[in-house]
Nucleic acid binder design. Structure first.
Length: 458
DNA sequence: TTTTGAGTTGTTCGA
DNA sequence: GTCGAACAACTCAAA
């Protein structure tokens, strides 16, 4: 038995419910806590996620009594070097199932093995690890509802009873410690980045909004969602803790919250099976879908990104994204539908923009959420399902409060009239644009474009 | 193997 | 204003 183990943190920046702690404590009397600042991941993260990560790391370091070793570099080089420096026999991680993480971990695994050390994977960031839920014939599910059923039947482990003192942490040599970088310049207001904040948020939701989640989650004008996405993203809380806290509570609202956790697992599973679906159509027949391109397409894309499409709920969403590095889920669908079906742009343009700005941006959920809207994703969603941005606004922001909060040009327009400012007696208020397209016409154009996909299917 | 029922989130039109 | 039907065809999952 080795005298030291390494606990390599990645997307699990917490001390409670940490199976890797138990595995490490089992393997060696003392452990070194490590986080690697990997330029390959930091680069594409966007300023909001980088900053949230840095803050979460500072908070974790504090929880570990200032014993988190933070090193910048390529993990394939850094992890074996650090493991060698303390002569660790094992390096403990929660398994990563993303396209990049899978490759990285295989390479680290090999490099460690060359020195006679071992990468030990315990648990994952999911209630049920990708690849575990399968049909009777062993194939993965491609339709959510049966996955959901099998997922619930499969079940999940109870949370691990751990805290910072579960492991005797080695004090890393001062000269090896790299300070967590200073925050990036971020304009958006970010949620507090600590495990404590995550647990407080969760407790507040459990105490109150979960009861009305079934209906209020669709209302961007209300605080009806849990806002746990960013905490799940960085593992400040684990989904199995969440499911355990929900216990056997039985109500449509609780069930629909469980279903959202299942969606997160489902899309991780899908991406794990089809890493190519992060970049291209899951349903390849959609490669035949004509999309807009060239300078005109760039201009419409810019209007969408900046929230000046002339469709209030779309613009409110895009501005919320900039202000809060977050967007309400219902509105994500509305702006996505608008980009794909009204502007005829490729879904991955929008997906990339989301990943750049969202503080909770998760590759699997983001790309597959977009593909669901585009129709190229896992479920056979009816092609004629085109969101009407006016009707959606009136239905889910009935008093217009959400729009007025984020679109100051419309602040004086009362009630739900705010969703159709072009019908005001004085016309569209100063500074706010006319609708950039005729939705009715673009809807028909989108349906017509879909014919190309059908033709490609033969 | 064959068959059958079903598939996150919608819109429009006409009665 | 409300309600139900139509909007296609295909693939999936399970019996």
């Amino acid at each position: 038995m080795s005298s030291v183990a390494v606990v390599w943190f990645r997307r699990d920046l917490r001390v409670h419910d940490q199976p890797t702690f138990l595995a490490a404590a089992d393997a060696a009397p003392r452990s070194l806590a490590l986080f690697v600042l990997d330029p390959a991941l930091l680069g594409p993260s966007g300023a909001a996620r980088r900053t949230f990560l840095f803050r979460a790391l500072r908070s974790l370091d504090e929880a570990l009594g200032g014993r988190l070793l933070v090193v910048r570099g390529d993990p394939v080089e850094v992890v074996p070097r650090v493991a060698a420096s303390v002569d660790a026999g094992t390096v403990h991680v929660a398994a990563d199932y993303g396209p990049y993480g899978t490759r990285r971990d295989e390479a680290v695994d090999e490099a460690l093995a060359d020195d006679g050390r071992e990468l030990v994977r315990t648990g994952s960031p999911y209630a049920v690890a990708p690849g575990r839920v399968r049909k009777d014939d062993g194939d993965p599910y491609r339709v959510f509802t049966p996955f959901r059923r099998a997922w619930a039947e499969h079940g999940w482990r109870a949370p691990a009873a751990t805290d910072a003192s579960t492991v005797a942490w080695l004090r890393p040599p001062e000269e090896d410690r790299v300070a967590v970088p200073a925050d990036d310049a971020v304009d958006a207001t970010l949620p507090e980045a600590s495990e404590d904040a995550a647990l407080r948020r969760w407790a507040a939701f459990l105490d109150d909004a979960v009861a009305t989640y079934g209906t209020d989650r669709d209302r961007p004008d209300r605080a009806g969602t849990s806002r746990m996405s960013v905490y799940l993203k960085y593992g400040l809380v684990h989904p199995r803790s969440i499911l355990a806290d929900l216990g056997t509570r039985d109500s449509p609202s609780v069930e629909s919250y469980r279903t959202e956790i299942a969606w997160r697992d489902f899309y991780a599973d899908v991406l794990h099976r089809r890493p190519d679906s992060a970049r291209g159509n899951y349903d390849r027949s959609f490669d035949a879908l004509p999309t807009a391109s060239g300078a005109a397409a760039r201009r419409t894309f810019d209007a969408w990104r900046e929230g000046r499409t002339g469709f209030p709920v779309v613009d409110a969403g895009m501005r919320q994204l900039r202000e809060q590095a977050w967007m309400h889920n219902r509105v994500r669908m509305i702006v996505a539908s608008f980009l794909v079906k009204d502007l005829h742009l490729p879904w991955w343009w929008g997906a990339r923009h989301f990943m750049e700005l969202l503080v909770d941006g998760d590759l699997a959920s983001n790309q597959h959420g977009w593909q669901w809207t585009a129709g190229s994703g896992t479920d056979a969603s009816p092609y004629f399902r085109v969101f009407n941005p006016i009707a959606q606004g009136e239905r889910f922001d009935p008093d217009g409060d959400y729009v007025r909060r984020f679109v100051p040009e419309l602040r004086d327009v009362p009630g739900k009239q705010v969703h159709q400012p072009w019908t005001l007696p004085g016309g569209v208020p100063d500074g706010y644009p006319e609708p950039m397209v005729d939705h009715k016409a673009e809807r028909l154009a989108a349906l017509a474009r879909f014919e190309q996909v059908k033709a490609a299917r033969g």
